[in-house]
Design a protein around this nucleic acid. Structure first.
Lengths: 123, 123
DNA sequence: ATATCGAGTTACCTTATGGAAACCTGGTTA
DNA sequence: TAACCAGGTTTCCATAAGGTAACTCGATAT
């Protein structure tokens, strides 16, 4: 049995969000870590440079195609740098930029919350 | 003209990532904010509860279907709560849980990095 | 000679997911 | 009594995005 208090009218609130940075800013910034496995790539690089095939085995089951795509996107965005080492055969190292490194604490925060949600049964 | 130093051999590194939490943990935790506009919903709720249609206008051009889907996912995950107010007609408020609120600093950190990448020309 | 490895690229295919638009329910207002 | 609102749900469709697998290229290693 529903008991609505009849005189408790629905107040229509002003339909504006509080004057905070607009959501499109968020959308744009979140795009920095968009795409499959992008966060994983950053995560794998947080302890230092890694090579292409190292990343592939760090992040199974990522495919070479997707890893390659993601690495060039992240390079374009300034999150990581690609370094060809003058070895023979040449090897390629990927490393976070300073700014890219600043994403790591953010990812850590998300992981922390994820753990605690899981612990509460929202797994 | 490529000048590889011929005696600088390619050292094969041990193919294990440093002993840090495995990437699958990250994958799992990142899923908490997965799906179109999920981060935007959290972002819009960070200043307090919002109603369905308020969120729709906060986050254009989100569709009712996607917003509805996202809200129930985020509720399941323990990020937000749905509250039916005893008004007439009933209105529905969505608010971040305590744990959901802890995602806000993480999103803020990502936004901060996004801004600075943009400022450096990686827009 | 041939096989292998690092570091990708290319072609093709599938599926999940988001968008659009119509519809629904119960209460309210004109 | 017709229209309208909040708060959704349902149907249908298109496309982007990722997966698989095969291929490349140059340089060792066998």
């Amino acid at each position: 049995m529903e008991t609505w208090l009849p005189n408790m009218a629905l107040k229509v609130r002003k339909n504006k969000s509080p004057s905070l940075p607009p959501p499109c800013m968020l959308t744009h910034c979140m795009a920095v870590i968009s795409g499959a496995w992008a966060a994983n790539v950053i995560w794998s690089l947080r302890a230092g440079p890694r090579r292409f095939n190292e990343l592939r085995t760090d992040i199974p089951p990522i495919s070479a195609k997707v890893l390659s795509t993601r690495l060039s996107e992240l390079e374009q965005r300034g999150v990581l740098v690609r370094n060809v080492q003058p070895t023979s055969p040449p090897s390629v190292e990927y490393a976070l930029t300073d700014l890219g490194g600043e994403l790591v604490p953010a990812l850590e925060a998300i992981v922390k919350v994820g753990h605690r949600l899981k612990a509460l049964g929202h797994g």
